[in-house]
């Protein structure tokens, strides 16, 4: 700022000079701000521009170049004959599965089919041990259509057993269809195998031979209907009791306790 007019003013004019200083202060601060802004608003460097190539438009008849446009796609993504790029540009590198934009301002390229990945992530979350996946995997030991299965609920209730008519494989939404007879009425239930409400699935009885259909809908016909699987479940439970000693020991202890209580009651009498 020009300070000479200030010096020429009378010394006693304090109010005026103070006002002047105030104005100058504003001016100074503004000039500093604009200086910073000017620095930030520098000429855009050519490095800021992402990689690009030229797309050529040629005349169909004369085969002459009609026009050309800069296309901000790396050369590998361009179709047609390779166009000569500028001298400064790097040689084209064909990198399989490379993100189409590469370094272009950190543009994220996503997988073209996210569904299997989403299913895998969900299954990992809902079935950390992999037991449910293994039970219905396409392996020799896995459960198959025609096997008699029993589903236990998380919130108690009677487990539902029945012959598996079909397995609808749909990632996290995979479901099984069980058929049984309850009080001589055919009942079919769908169960989502990855649902938290399904506490456990057991194989009651395996089918003797592999079913030659994916969906055993014919088992709904009276001729092929399996009827109730209650006796199969009963037999399976028996074998379980034989195999596990804990339940038997518990039952024995209970009986002993009851006996003792009865004896004590007798003694009191």
């Amino acid at each position: 700022m020009n300070a000479t007019p200030l010096s020429r003013r009378p010394l006693g004019c304090l109010k005026t000079s103070l006002r002047h200083v105030r104005q100058q202060k504003v001016l100074f601060s503004r000039s500093m701000a604009t200086a910073v802004a000017a620095k930030a608003q520098q000429k855009p460097s050519p490095d800021a521009l992402p990689d690009h190539n030229f797309f050529r438009l040629t005349d169909q008849k004369t085969k002459k170049l009609r026009s050309a446009f800069a296309v901000y796609t790396p050369p590998t993504a361009l179709r047609g004959p390779p166009t000569p790029t500028s001298k400064n540009s790097k040689p084209d590198k064909v990198v399989p599965n490379a993100p189409i934009h590469g370094r272009v301002s950190g543009l994220v390229v996503v997988p073209s089919d996210p569904m299997p990945l989403l299913h895998a992530a969900q299954i990992k979350k809902m079935d950390p041990t992999g037991a449910r996946t293994a039970l219905f995997a396409k392996t020799r030991n896995a459960a198959r259509v025609g096997d008699v299965l029993m589903v236990t609920h998380r919130r108690g209730g009677e487990p539902f057993a029945g012959v598996c008519l079909s397995i609808r494989r749909a990632g996290i939404d995979t479901a099984i269809l069980l058929r049984n007879h309850l009080s001589k009425i055919g009942v079919e239930m769908w169960y989502k195998i990855y649902n938290r409400n399904v506490a456990g699935i057991e194989i009651i009885k395996r089918r003797a031979r592999r079913a030659r259909r994916a969906r055993l809908t014919y088992m709904r016909q009276p001729k092929h209907d399996m009827g109730s699987v209650a006796d199969l479940v009963h037999a399976w439970k028996k074998t379980r009791k034989v195999l596990t000693t804990r339940g038997a020991a518990k039952a024995g202890a209970k009986a002993a306790a009851a006996k003792a209580a009865a004896a004590a009651a007798k003694g009191k009498k």
Partner: peptide, 14 residues
Amino acid sequence: KKGMTAYMGKTGAR
């Protein structure tokens, strides 16, 4: 749109 599926909640909601 990539398709439909189910979201399994932790409390058993589908």
